[in-house]
Simulated assay, not measured.
Amino acid sequence: MSTISNTHNDVTTTQLKQHPLQVAKRLEKFKTTIFTQMSMLAVKHGAINLGQGFPNFDGPDFVKEAAIQAIRDGKNQYARGYGVSDLNNAIAERFKKDAGLVVDPEKEITVTSGCTEAIAATILGLINPGDEVILFAPFYDSYEATLSMAGAKVKSITLRPPDFAAPIEELKSAISKNTRAILINTPHNPTGKMFTREELNSIASLCIENNVLVFSDEVYDKLAFDMEHISPASLPGMFERTVTMNSLGKTFSLTGWKIGWAIAPPHLTWGVRQAHSYLTFATSTPMQSATAAALRAPDSYFVELKRDYMAKRAILVEGLEAVGFKVFPSN
């Protein structure tokens, strides 16, 4: 009898006729994620997988050793819901160094199971059914799916080549009395675009004028090549209306650890933590301890990371152009 492969089991065609697969209406339009599809095709054809955001090399030894030591030290039970104290402090230290902002590690930082959960907790904790949320397309697929779970109305504004500039006039027209938030991803996945200070200032002015929140996904902040990364929260008048989301995985090549965080003022953190409490409650305890060590890495680590990725970018661009692709610059 023929079967249909399912993530959890094999479903026969007879079983399908008797019990059709059902999904909540809020998720009916969404298929298997593009990352799953591309990874399966890469395995099937023995191809290089450029679809999913993980490297083909391992993370640094000093971070892995910190995790091993944490396990040996007995840090293996539930962590505090919003994060191990040492990690919250390390995130605050890193944010001050990178964005120039002093935040309260106890009241303004929430540790999550990867940035994807930070995104989900932010959306589910701060967005009401019927709220409008503006996205810049193309975008990471979890944005729209999670907004659908929250019952939000998505408005999409397309970034177009060659420079993928933010169409400010189009954004201005898209904002209405029902607009609750703008979700920004900088550096941007998948275009590689980084929002400029001028663009971010224009977006900030619109947000302040219209009382709109910003959800800022900054997981690639340390993979910036030619431009300075700017956190929207660092702009005048923006911290109080911004949730900044980041993670360990991209910067330290440890995507399987799923350690992320959300930084926001207390009145926004409350909603994020309420959702987080009922999504995962807490995140891996020993990995949090190791992440604290990672975030306190010397500046040389980040300099070398950028240098290595710039060399890899040059190889990739040369290879793509050699087989006929037109490659737009990434910042």
Results as ranks from 00 to 15, higher is better:
T36L: 13
F325Y: 09
T242E: 04
L16R: 10
G53I: 09
L213Y: 10
T14W: 14
N89M: 13
L200C: 03
A311D: 12
H8Y: 14
F328P: 11
F95S: 01
T285Y: 10
L254S: 02
E198Y: 08
A92V: 00
V212N: 06
P236L: 06
P265E: 08
N210K: 02
I175C: 01
F215V: 01
T242Y: 06
N210L: 04
P187H: 07
A174R: 01
V323D: 06
E93K: 07
P329D: 00
F195C: 10
N9V: 13
G192D: 05
E169D: 10
A166P: 03
E209A: 12
I71F: 08
L16D: 08
I208R: 02
M245V: 02
P161C: 03
D299M: 07
S113F: 14
Q22W: 14
S202E: 08
G81V: 15
P167V: 04
T36S: 13
A145C: 10
I175D: 01
G271K: 09
V214T: 01
V154F: 05
E108G: 00
A145F: 13
E144D: 04
M287W: 15
T36W: 15
A292Q: 02
V317Q: 09
P20D: 09
P187T: 03
G324P: 05
R241W: 05
N211V: 11
D61T: 02
E132K: 00
A233C: 04
T116E: 15
P190D: 08
A275D: 10
T179P: 05
A181V: 04
K258W: 04
P286Q: 04
A290I: 03
Y82M: 13
T251C: 01
T291M: 02
V243Q: 05
I4S: 13
K96W: 10
M245L: 00
N178P: 08
K326V: 11
L200Y: 01
A152H: 01
I4C: 12
D308Y: 06
T255Q: 12
P138Y: 06
S289V: 13
T13I: 12
A311F: 12
P286S: 06
R197N: 11
L268I: 01
A67Q: 14
Q37M: 14
S277F: 15
D226L: 14
S284H: 08
T196V: 02
S113Q: 15
F136T: 02
V43N: 11
T112E: 04
H19D: 15
I34L: 13
A137M: 15
F281I: 14
G319F: 15
A322M: 13
V212A: 09
L41Q: 12
H188S: 05
F62G: 00
L183C: 00
I127H: 01
T14I: 15
N128H: 08
N210A: 03
A47T: 12
R72H: 15
E65Y: 07
G114R: 03
P162W: 09
T14S: 15
R273C: 03
I184S: 04
F252H: 07
M287H: 13
F57W: 08
G260S: 10
S284Y: 05
S284G: 04
Y278G: 09
